[in-house]
Amino acid sequence: MAGTFELFADEDSRIRFRLVAPDGTVLAVSGQYPDKYQAAAAIEDVRECAGTGLISDLAPAPNLARTRTPKRPHHVRPRLAGKANSLGAA
Rank of each mutant, 00 (worst) to 15 (best):
I43K: 04
V46Q: 05
P62E: 04
A2W: 00
G3R: 04
G82S: 08
L58W: 05
P62G: 01
D23G: 05
D12Q: 14
G31I: 02
R68T: 14
P73N: 12
P70N: 06
A90R: 13
P60W: 08
C49W: 14
H75T: 07
R66W: 00
L58A: 12
K36F: 02
F8M: 05
L80K: 14
A61P: 04
Q38D: 10
H75N: 12
L54H: 07
R47H: 06
D45R: 15
A90P: 15
D35V: 02
S56N: 11
L64K: 11
G3S: 06
A50V: 13
V46N: 03
K36P: 00
S86G: 15
D57M: 06
Q38V: 04
I55C: 06
R72D: 09
A61G: 02
G51A: 10
L19G: 03
G88P: 07
S86R: 01
G51E: 08
H75K: 07
G51P: 01
R66K: 11
R77E: 13
A50E: 09
G24S: 09
L19Y: 11
T52H: 10
A42V: 01
R14V: 00
I15L: 05
A39W: 03
A65N: 14
K83R: 14
S56M: 07
I55T: 11
V20S: 01
E11L: 09
F8G: 05
A9S: 14
A50W: 10
N85H: 13
S56K: 11
A59D: 11
R72W: 12
A59M: 10
Q32A: 15
L7H: 05
S86V: 02
F8H: 12
D23C: 02
L80M: 11
A42L: 01
P62N: 01
R79M: 09
D10A: 05
R47N: 14
F8S: 05
N63R: 13
R14F: 10
S13N: 14
I43M: 15
D57L: 08
P70H: 05
R77N: 09
D10E: 06
N63K: 11
A42E: 14
L58S: 10
A42D: 13
G51D: 07
L19Q: 10
G88T: 06
K71F: 02
I55E: 08
P34G: 04
L27P: 01
Q32V: 12
A89E: 11
N85E: 14
L58D: 13
Y37W: 00
E6V: 12
Y37T: 12
V29L: 04
V29D: 02
V26P: 03
D45I: 07
P22W: 03
R66D: 09
R79H: 09
R47I: 06
N85R: 14
Y33K: 01
G24T: 09
L87I: 03
F5G: 02
N85D: 14
F8A: 04
L54S: 11
A89V: 11
R68P: 00
P73W: 00
R79C: 03
A39K: 03
I15K: 08
A61C: 03
V29P: 00
A81G: 05
A81L: 12
D57Q: 09
I55G: 00
A40R: 15
N63S: 13
R16T: 02
